[in-house]
């Protein structure tokens, strides 16, 4: 499907552009007008809330490793790594979404929408179910 492929390429180039913006604050300032500082601060708080979510996932990874010591090593390491990976994704997404929102506000465009919250909820639900299964079955093993 050429349409979907082109969309994906566009998505990747957009992400690369955003990553460049993380380290080039002057570039974001050149675009559009400065929004009301209260909107910028609200965006910053959202970014921090996502960062806390990332930190909580990382803490969850540690907790699985330390507070389920009777579990088989493979299960424990797998669950812990899954939570840590989710934390990394969440942190990277936090800054990316912050940049996109900041730019949209400067240009006066609609704020970016995202599938990420739904995806993260699904991952957390799956990890929670896996944890229940592991705790019920892993103790015998």
């Amino acid at each position: 499907m050429p349409g979907r492929g082109a969309g994906r390429v566009l998505c990747v180039s957009e992400f690369v552009r955003n990553v460049r913006l993380w380290f080039a604050p002057q570039e974001i300032r050149e675009e559009g007008g400065t929004p009301d500082y209260r909107f910028s601060l609200a965006n910053e708080r959202t970014f921090l809330a996502w960062l806390r979510t990332a930190l909580a996932l990382i803490g969850g990874g540690f907790a699985v490793d330390q507070f389920l010591p009777d579990l088989r090593w493979a299960w424990r390491a797998g669950l812990a790594l899954a939570l840590l990976a989710a934390g990394v994704l969440c942190a990277l997404r936090a800054v990316n979404h912050w940049v996109r929102t900041e730019r949209a506000m400067r240009r006066g465009e609609d704020l970016p929408v995202s599938r990420f919250p739904a995806l993260l909820s699904l991952v957390v639900a799956v990890v929670a179910v896996a944890m229940v299964v592991v705790v019920l079955t892993g103790w015998e093993g």
Partner: peptide, 12 residues
């Protein structure tokens, strides 16, 4: 002043 992208990236 609003948060700079560099500051946000460093925290991330």
């Amino acid at each position: 002043v609003s948060l700079t992208p560099r500051h946000a990236a460093a925290a991330t």
